[in-house]
Write a protein that binds this DNA or RNA. Structure first.
Lengths: 243, 243
DNA sequence: CGCTAGGTTGACTTTAATCAAAAAACGTGG
DNA sequence: CCACGTTTTTTGATTAAAGTCAACCTAGCG
């Protein structure tokens, strides 16, 4: 681990966090909320390019993103890398580590980030006390399973342009849920990382961007993207519904 | 639901089930084991070709396979189907339904099957009482996430023959863990279903089988497969480690 | 101001998809 | 048990999509 990743011992209160509705269950009464704060032990800052955890690290905690943007990726023995997801504020990382007590992927910050460290023992203990939290944890894991099912559909059945359209729509939708624009975004990842996630080469990603741009569907300038015709993107992603 | 799928009200005891080590936590004392039996409400038989649950069905229960073989698959709006997994005895299905209370995929029996129906409310209630069961449920979900990460690597980074080699090795390994042969297996799914899972067309699957057969790595006769050179398969799947 | 990493574009190659036909296996009913 | 139609699988020929290789451009940074 990078020595600059100092684990702060400052206590953070979920009860006063504006991301609570994204990473914590809602509808708790004030006194229970107090106890729920115990699930988060510390915060931790991660610099751009540094890893939050790596393949083989022992698993102790889940991480909720407060600020910043991450990628998770797995590597094959011969060095091929597959990005398995991009995570933003309010999303939970580290679920991969539960099954074997070791992490099976790397989580790398794509910009300076801060995460809430939630020791999994705390999560489990409080889950037994609060059915609402228990249900929430189950939903988070189930959501990840369903998300990955969608990625399998993308990788197994879609062509390059459909994948990129789906990717952009998904990103902008998640950003919009966090109060950002519905039509503009700044990509935090390179063409190569997008390509890895979508199962295509960086040149193919670039060509698809250019094609969309030529067709007036989006405006692209490096990592800035503006979606001009969201319906056209949706049609590319899902031809049948929009034909 | 098919009316022939009669839900039996016969009580099944996990404590006496020979699949217990596959789908239930180990190390319980006899009196707790008794309570653990309560997690399974009923058994249900599913005929080959029938679905255990379908996209849109409301989620109430997880299912543990006692006998038989399933595929799970998702469909896009324009009718493209992606097989997201193949499940065999001792494996758990239905986790996709937790997040939204509705199933987001179909589970279809590829041979006559019998499953244990575990109402999720029971699972959650007993999980709060038994940390060991709680941990077990978390591990099952985490394992599914990690498995899907591996499939993403397969679909995103591997070529057709690598995918098929990985698929065969995975299948035979799981069968072997259940007491079957390390080298022989009978496929329960068609070439088309294998292709859907691996993101390739049925013709490509067939050609890859033929190629392995020509090279003397496997013997194929329709759905019967014998692995003659497991190391050659492993080398195809993972060139670096074996070069 | 030049260096470097990331991004774009073009020419060509490779891989797998598509289209098509035939063979093999399977199920059903006579 | 056999003949029939159906489904599944195999194989070949051709096409389409994306990968590879290479050159060049652009932006950001020391």
């Amino acid at each position: 681990m990078n020595p600059e990743n100092i684990t702060e011992t400052i206590k953070v209160a979920c009860s006063s966090c504006n991301l609570r509705e994204l990473c914590m269950p809602v509808g708790f009464n004030p006194e229970d909320m107090q106890k729920l704060d115990d699930v988060v032990a510390t915060r931790r800052r991660i610099k751009q390019g540094d890893s939050l955890f790596s393949y083989g690290d022992s698993f102790t905690s889940l991480f909720a993103i407060r600020t910043g943007f991450f990628k998770t990726c797995v590597s094959s023995a011969d060095g091929r890398e597959q990005v398995t997801g991009f995570q933003m504020a309010g999303e939970i990382m580290g679920l991969d580590g539960i099954v074997s007590d070791y992490h099976s992927c790397d989580a790398i910050a794509l910009e300076d980030a801060e995460v809430c460290v939630m020791p999994f023992a705390n999560v489990e203990e409080l889950s037994r006390e609060f059915p609402q939290l228990q249900r929430h944890v189950h939903k988070i894991m189930s959501r990840e399973i369903v998300r990955e099912n969608g990625v399998m559909m993308l990788l197994g059945n879609m062509r390059a342009e459909e994948r990129l359209a789906a990717f952009l729509l998904n990103l902008v939708q998640r950003l919009h849920a966090r109060g950002f624009s519905q039509s503009e975004l700044t990509l935090r990842m390179s063409r190569e990382e997008i390509g890895s996630y979508l199962g295509m080469k960086l040149e193919t990603v670039s060509r698809a961007f250019s094609k969309f741009s030529d067709e007036g569907i989006i405006e692209v300038k490096q990592r800035y993207v503006r979606i001009i015709e969201p319906d056209a993107l949706k049609k590319i992603f899902n031809p049948q519904t929009y034909s």
